[in-house]
């Protein structure tokens, strides 16, 4: 195939996607930036306002605390699942994978609904506790930080399982055999082989879940209380209640900036290590 026909074919194959990218993927980001600085007046007014707003600062604090805690916990839980899956035969793994894929692909609304049923004042968990202790127990487990944390972690675990599983599966079997022949106990194998060698997957899982939890919107609005709202809910609040789009846009820019701050070092690290090049 000569060069000009390659370019012609390239135009045919790539232009529809490029057109979409240029019309509906880039402009929204541009519009947010543009709106946040009041258009061509390039004013930093909104950024000064949010920097001195106690509502914003409190929400930022909540967001960071919840994002860090839920992503670390979910990666820990996902690691246990990934190691378990990696030990299974390919056939059993396929079946067990459904147990992770189904929650991953089930609407977040379904999970939030279920958690209001499970964790509610007269919910299943309080019912079981009441029955066990033979008194009426109504622990407040939902519409507060506990509900938010449980719901968010639950939705993050399946996301973290897959990158970690890929890393754990990539570890050469002979390394394990060598270690056990040399007399290493399972705890030591875990500490000196499995964890260090699956670090790329663990970090990818950590980044993905952290990005996802920073932008969490549905879970805090359905399972969190009024004091547990996150930055996304603040964006929605200014957009829908206050109709203050520059403010909503400025908070969005802050969210994007936070993700770049945490994402760039990881991207460089992965590139240097030459892993996951084809991945996101």
């Amino acid at each position: 195939m000569n060069r000009s026909s390659t370019i012609g074919a390239q135009a045919i194959f790539m232009s529809p996607a490029v057109l979409l990218a240029a019309t509906i993927m880039l402009p929204p980001l541009f519009f947010i930036l543009y709106t946040s600085v009041h258009g061509t007046s390039l004013s930093l007014h909104e950024y000064r306002e949010i920097a001195s707003s106690s509502l914003f600062r409190r929400t930022l604090g909540t967001t960071l605390v919840i994002a860090v805690a839920s992503s670390v916990l979910s990666v820990f839980l996902a690691f246990i699942v990934a190691v378990h899956l990696a030990r299974q035969t390919a056939r059993r793994r396929t079946i067990l994978l459904v147990l992770v894929l189904l929650p991953l692909w089930t609407s977040i609304l379904v999970k939030c609904f279920a958690f209001t049923i499970i964790l509610g004042r007269d919910g299943i968990l309080n019912g079981i506790l009441s029955w066990l202790f033979n008194t009426k127990i109504q622990l407040p487990l939902v519409l507060n930080r506990i509900g938010l944390f449980v719901g968010l972690t639950n939705s993050l675990v399946p996301i973290a399982v897959f990158p970690i599983l890929a890393s754990v599966l990539a570890i050469d079997d002979s390394v394990y055999r060598a270690a056990s022949i040399m007399g290493a106990k399972p705890a030591r194998i875990l500490r000196t082989i499995t964890i260090p060698l699956s670090l790329p997957g663990i970090l990818a899982g950590l980044f993905t879940t952290f990005v996802y939890s920073l932008g969490a919107y549905i879970v805090p609005s359905l399972l969190g209380g009024p004091r547990d709202q996150m930055l996304s809910n603040l964006v929605d609040f200014y957009n829908r209640q206050v109709l203050d789009w520059p403010r909503a846009a400025a908070i969005s820019v802050v969210l994007l900036a936070m993700i770049s701050v945490f994402g760039t070092p990881l991207a460089f690290w992965r590139q240097r290590k030459g892993i996951g090049g084809a991945r996101v």
């Binding site: 509906i24 929204p28 947010i32 932008g215 919107y217 957009n239 789009w245 969005s252 994007l256």
Partner: peptide, 14 residues
Amino acid sequence: VVPTVVAALGLYLC
């Protein structure tokens, strides 16, 4: 990597 709320607001403005 872009939080969905940010994309949603951008699309809404667009």
